[in-house]
């Protein structure tokens, strides 16, 4: 009897935990909307910051985030799709090679994002970039410093597992009958992948891409010292330029600015923009993924 009562208490605790999580989610959304909505205007989105970043808009941060995620997507998606094809179609479940790849992908997924920043600094900037300068640029500093290219590639590495996992899941939902149909018609393995498997996984590839963009747009740690800039008076014109980013803007404005209180509306509005962006991307991805899973049943 006593035991039963204890169980009832724990059961109600489980429900309370769920409510608590939902409450926090709603609080974050509500407070961000309440603080950011009044300052959110068309002008805010298309203007440059003014008066030492105490006024004006966040246009360069929006463009910077968009460009960075674009370059990141171009790098991460093909890589991720091909790796997923390997894991789902070529890898034998028990081969050491396949297991090692799986472990590597998992490792990429759990390594702290700041480590990617260090890697970007040490590898892309310090090693690749500086050697590029030595070889192509006669030692003049161009690539051996933080830039949108290196930040994007760093971010691509971070989002690679996101793409791989989504695409592999989608590929695995394609029924074996489809592959058999193709092979029985005399298609080779590659023809089967190209004409049956990949077209059937398009939703999954799209889901993975959206999730990666959402993740990349929101991450700040990897770009802290690989390319994000505090303030730029111009948009990036080349891959070797630095860029402004929404997340970094929030961080800088809320912690480094000389007068945090004065820029509070800007901070909230920027947070709202970033949150709306990642939130809607994630919502699309969640819907797409549920659709894929439903189809698989």
């Amino acid at each position: 009897m006593n035991r039963n009562r204890k169980d009832i208490i724990i059961e109600s605790l489980t429900g309370i935990s769920v409510l608590l999580i939902i409450f926090i989610i709603i609080s974050i959304l509500a407070i961000t909307i309440k603080g950011g909505w009044p300052n959110l205007s068309w002008k805010f989105l298309i203007e440059f910051p003014k008066d030492g970043m105490t006024k004006g808009g966040i246009f360069p941060a929006i463009v910077g985030t968009a460009l960075m995620t674009l370059i990141m997507t171009i790098a991460a998606v093909p890589f991720g799709v091909i790796t997923a094809v390997y894991l789902a179609e070529y890898a034998k479940e028990n081969s050491v090679f396949a297991k090692t790849i799986r472990f590597a992908v998992k490792t990429l997924a759990v390594v702290p994002s700041i480590i990617f920043g260090l890697f970007g600094l040490g590898f892309f900037i310090g090693f690749i970039g500086q050697n590029m300068d030595k070889i192509f640029n006669g030692g003049v500093l161009k690539w051996g410093q933080p830039s949108i290219l290196w930040a994007s590639l760093t971010m691509a590495l971070l989002t690679l597992p996101v793409v791989i996992v989504s695409v592999e899941e989608a590929i695995r939902t394609i029924p074996v009958e489809m592959r058999e149909a193709s092979l029985a018609l005399g298609a080779t393995k590659w023809q089967t992948i190209r004409r049956v498997v990949l077209p059937g996984s398009l939703t999954g590839i799209l889901t993975g891409t959206i999730l990666a963009i959402s993740r990349g747009a929101g991450e700040v740690a990897p770009i802290l010292f690989t390319g994000a800039a505090y303030y730029l008076s111009d948009l990036p014109h080349s891959l070797s330029d630095q860029f402004m980013s929404l997340g970094y803007h929030i961080y800088i404005m809320s912690t480094q600015s000389s007068n945090v209180d004065a820029t509070l509306p800007i901070q909230f509005a920027t947070t709202l923009v970033l949150l709306l962006l990642t939130f809607s991307l994630n919502a699309i991805a969640v819907i797409l993924r549920y659709r894929i899973r439903k189809k698989a049943k």
Partner: peptide, 20 residues
């Protein structure tokens, strides 16, 4: 095997047209 399967077609228990 690829050419073999061109010569020997197969119809499956569950019809399996492509989603095309």
């Amino acid at each position: 095997v690829v050419n073999l399967r061109k010569k020997i077609g197969m119809i499956f228990q569950k019809s399996n047209p492509f989603a095309k």
